[in-house]
Write a protein that binds this DNA or RNA. Sequence first.
DNA 1: GATCTATACGTAGAGCATCTACATATAGTG
DNA 2: CACTATATGTAGATGCTCTACGTATAGATC
Lengths: 110, 110
Amino acid sequence: MKPDAVRGHLDGLILAVLEDGPRHGYAIIEALQTRSGGRLDLPTGTVYPALRRLERAALLSGTWSTVGGRERRTYTLTRSGRHALAGQRADWTEFSAVVDAVLRPSAGTT
Amino acid sequence: MKPDAVRGHLDGLILAVLEDGPRHGYAIIEALQTRSGGRLDLPTGTVYPALRRLERAALLSGTWSTVGGRERRTYTLTRSGRHALAGQRADWTEFSAVVDAVLRPSAGTT
DNA sequence: GATCTATACGTAGAGCATCTACATATAGTG
DNA sequence: CACTATATGTAGATGCTCTACGTATAGATC
């Protein structure tokens, strides 16, 4: 899968993963891999900046903790984040319907 | 619909419209509107550069003509273009399946 | 105790598709 | 003569994502 394809849809994917409960960055990347059947393998250089962006937008809140001597930043969906996720889902539904409609061979408009 | 969402998928949409037969830029934009039920309204500054890019990539071939005193550049799908369209459709199928899978609430993995 | 791998976070610089806004030209209408 | 629809195109800016790199701890292996 071309990595560029997620452009514009990454936020929704991250929010969706976080809906299950708080996770730290590394775990989010793994969850994305798992949920997509291994077809979505996003580099840290893509995900970490996105997380900071989402936190800055107040869709996530992050807290530091130390687990096994390692620093972790755990992200939790905020109320705004949940709201945004719903919006993203609606947007995706509409968008995918539009692309389906245009992409589908127009087999006779009769 | 956020305009940025088509990012990375525009090529496929244009190729799909051209599958019905040759069209010029203005008509392509109108066809995109029609096929999407008016939800896809792309500005000329997006479509014209894309057409030139696709032509440069040999997925389209363009020819000038004059209709009613106005210059038109009519684009036709090349053999490579048809091939690329098939690839874009496959990519889209996979991509939308992945996004669906990640976005869908994980209602119990039980 | 040195090295290697997995875990975990992050930044720097670049690319490139798309956006907004503008520029140009013809035909027809009022 | 001005305005709208048709028709094509460029200029500059934006901003997400990419590639590549940098840092650090824990545990296993040698």
